[in-house]
Design a protein around this nucleic acid. Structure first.
Lengths: 230, 230
DNA sequence: CCTATGTGATGATATAAGTCAATCAAATGT
DNA sequence: ACATTTGATTGACTTATATCATCACATAGG
């Protein structure tokens, strides 16, 4: 909505890694053309295939990023949380989004014109470097996910998903989430029913505890073993 | 081996997209510190997990890039052919290789110190831009592969592999390849036996023809339909 | 020349995981 | 307060795909 209830980029600066490379003057330039948006849970921020005009920087809430395949199948390839900006590879190739972004919960985000960012990548070496490092990390994450999805079976994949959520996304244990079983399935490359069944066996084996929105990993070591054995 | 039997980067320039952004002076700097290497089929160029010192630019032959998972399982994530340089995401993160590179056939490649390249990314805007575009394209390719591998079943995945090889890697039809059935399987996320079986059904249905090292797509349209239906 | 060794091919079998269908609980709208 | 929707759960069944075992063939090495 209005940018009034967001402080300016200059003060927001301390929280967002990548923007540290920018000078005050550059930050002001970003601030000038940014639009602060509010999304309710479930609302689409951008959709795969649509033209991409903006870079999105999540300032609160949580956003899931997923690929839509044929037959209504989806695969969640990651999350963006405060203060991640979402790297959109299409911005440098075909100006199209190659995955969709949807708010998992109440989310606010700043949209900045892609041109402005790309321009700063051109003119500011340090920014460009952070940018490339960020893309690199995303690529490495994808490698890990692709290896897990193709080489492991259901228990191993779900173990990876739980470890990822607790370790990388929510950074806490137990963690409170409003991801659905379908989301967990889309993260692990399986059907919702299979997800429910593995989670049940994990509960029965006292590896995890689930109470409503709260998921707790009780036996991380065993989960890691399951992950390793595929 | 010796750099004598390779012409200098200055003359090689016309063939390699990304280096077009470099000035003569910069190209000379690259030329100075580059090492030209020769690899026989099957030889490892670099291995997942090892420290990465160099960027690799393939000047002849073909290189397969693959992730090694647990239990000896591998997944081929792409190929590098003349004149691709291999983007190594670890160079900007942890200085480790996150996938392995192996020569599929007689291959020559130039190795350039990662520092030199990274330095030029810093100082040359156009080079940085080409660099980011290249990474972006790799990421988009990974998205497509990950969607294919997780959402499609064996015939769809093998169809994708054949279309990819003919269209993107060999750019010809028929194409001559010395990839083994195991390689085709590693590209498609299945076992060697499954790969052999689908290929057999494809042959029986007159979609493809295989004669020794030669693979020909006879009915591309039908293969694309199979790909779409998963 | 014979023996390893790697690759391709095939059949029998086991099993992992998807599909389909029904039920239940909680949330939401009227 | 009731109807409707949405998500979670479970069971029965089917099927896709891996595994295992075997065999043929070519090539390389001693």
């Amino acid at each position: 909505m209005s940018k009034l209830f967001e402080s300016s980029c200059l003060h927001c600066k301390k929280r967002s890694e990548i923007f540290e490379a920018l000078s005050e003057e550059e930050l002001e330039r970003v601030d000038m053309c940014r639009v602060s948006m509010h999304y309710n849970a479930g609302e689409i921020i951008f959709k795969q295939g649509s033209p991409c005009y903006d870079f999105v920087c999540v300032t609160s809430g949580l956003v899931k990023l997923y690929i839509e395949g044929e037959n209504d199948r989806r695969l969640i390839i990651g999350f963006a949380k405060p203060v991640d900006y979402i790297f959109v590879p299409g911005a440098y190739v075909d100006k199209r989004h190659h995955f969709s972004a949807v708010a998992c919960e109440e989310t606010t985000a700043c949209l900045v014109e892609a041109d402005i960012i790309q321009n700063m990548v051109r003119t500011n070496q340090n920014f460009a470097n952070s940018f490339i490092r960020k893309i690199s990390m995303q690529a490495i994450g994808l490698f890990e996910q692709i290896a897990s999805l193709t080489h492991k079976q259901i228990p191993g994949r779900m173990a990876d998903t739980l470890i990822y959520l607790s370790g990388k996304v929510y950074s806490s244990n137990p963690f409170s989430t409003n991801l659905t079983r379908q989301d967990l399935a889309d993260l692990s490359g399986m059907t919702k029913e299979s997800a429910i069944r593995v989670l049940k066996t994990f509960k029965e084996d006292d590896l995890i505890r689930i109470d409503g929105n709260l998921i707790e990993i009780i036996n991380l070591q065993m989960l890691e073993t399951i992950s390793r054995n595929g």
